[in-house]
Structure formats: C-alpha cells, structure tokens
Amino acid sequence: MKHTRLILGIILILLLFALMLYYSLDHNNHDPDPKYIIDHYKQFNTTKVTLTGDVKNVDRTNHTLLIQLSSSPGDILLVNTTEPLNSTQPGDVVEVYGTLSSGTHMTAETVLISERWKDDLIYVRSLPAIPFALYLFFSTWRFNRSTRRFERRQKHV
C-alpha cells in the first residue's frame, strides 16, 4: 500500500498521455486543424469547415473579407459573405463556417466577428484570475517538501 499514490499517479498520467496521443494522431480525421484543411482543401469541397483568423481587409462593395488564419499565419483566405460588414474593421477577429472552393477562397454560411479591442479584453480580464487563484490557494494550503504533499495551513484546519 506504500506505493498506492505513485501507482495511481502513473496510471492517471499514462491515461492522460494516451488520450492526448490519440487526439494528436487522429484529430485530422474528425476535427481537422486549419493548416490541414487549407493544405488538403480538395478533401473538404463537399463538407463545411470552420476557420478562424484576423481580418486583413474588408471589401464592403463585393461583400468579401480577407482573412489571415490564426493557427496558420502564412495562409490568407478570401471569404464571401452575405452578412453585413458595416462595422467590420481590419484587425477584428473572425470565425467563419462555410465551404472552401479553393485553398484561398471560401463561401461563408455563418460569420462571427469580434472587434479587436473586445477580443483583447478577454485576455486583460483573465489577468486578475492568476493572483486571485494563487492567493486563495496558498492562503489555505502549503506544500510540505518532506511529505511531498500539500497540507492545510493552521488557521484553515
């Protein structure tokens, strides 16, 4: 029973690693990443895909957006959409769902546009969480190096 925790830890880590390895090896068959979609766009001619990126240019006359894909920065996509682009500006963050007609052109069915400042604000709003969580945790628990476990601080026992 002495090594129960160690064995449990190893089992859990192996399970997690297996889960991540399976995802890594098989995700392009179920939920392909943007780079794979662009590189193999012919495979996706009949299926609709979701891509995200930053707006590089807005053409309100022709209802098109030029998008730089976020997870594949080298790739630029021209998106045709019927949705209003009146308030869309270069730099805004966009999520598009539609059909690829080539490696650089998509006809969008749905477009979700976030203003850049609102998107950046998500990260700014996230910052207080780190000191908040650390303060809460370390005011309740402390790490005992000899037992290699966290133990409750006296006032919280």
Binding site: I122, Y123, R125, S126, L127, P128, A129, I130, A133
Partner: peptide
C-alpha cells in the same frame, strides 16, 4: 472561451 476571471469567480 470565457475569461479566466469569470471562471474563478
């Protein structure tokens, strides 16, 4: 994703 602060709150 929701922001981390909302999650912690």
């Amino acid at each position: 994703m929701s922001d981390w602060f909302t999650h912690t709150l």
